[in-house]
């Protein structure tokens, strides 16, 4: 247990830290790591899907051909996972700044995890449907 200064009169410990001390700061570090990955992944995503494509968007036939390339498919799915993770971690950080109770914070984490898993599952399903049309 860490030591804390205690007010001699009130017997109150001066500052109560967070509740995740056994896993300190994983939120911030994950945010930074996923952020750097998103920077790389999104640059390729934007260039490949929009900036080197005539008119800036692929048509239906073109999307199917593009996504059927296994490297592209893996890249886009990794991008989806990492960017969803980064975005929801960010939302979590903003919500946590409101100083909710630990119970509410655990609920937020659980809810956002479900949203993230659902978004990634949807993306995988969509990719499978598109590639199967090829």
């Amino acid at each position: 247990m860490r030591e804390r200064a205690v007010d001699p009169e009130t017997g109150r410990s001066a500052w109560k830290g967070g509740r995740e001390a056994e896993r300190p700061a994983w939120g911030w570090i994950l945010q930074a790591v996923t952020g750097v990955l998103v920077l790389i992944l999104i640059t390729v995503h934007m260039v490949a899907n929009h900036f080197i494509v005539s008119r800036g968007l692929r048509d239906y036939r073109d999307v199917i051909a593009y996504l059927s390339n296994p490297i592209v498919m893996v890249w886009e799915l990794v991008f989806l996972i990492v960017v969803t993770w980064h975005g929801l971690l960010g939302l979590r950080a903003v919500l946590f700044d409101f100083g909710f109770s630990p119970r509410t914070e655990r609920r937020i984490t659980r809810l956002l995890s479900v949203v993230g898993v659902a978004a990634v599952a949807y993306g995988m399903w969509l990719t499978a449907v598109i590639v199967s049309r090829g």
């Binding site: 239906y60 969803t84 975005g87 960010g90 939302l91 978004a119 949807y122 993306g123 969509l126 598109i130």
Partner: peptide, 23 residues
């Protein structure tokens, strides 16, 4: 911008469902 981009991410995913609908 972060919150806006998160909203955009989900809009974007929604729009891509048109690919499942058809050409």
């Amino acid at each position: 911008t972060g919150l806006g981009l998160l909203v955009y991410l989900f809009l974007h995913l929604g729009v891509l469902s048109m690919l499942a609908v058809g050409p």
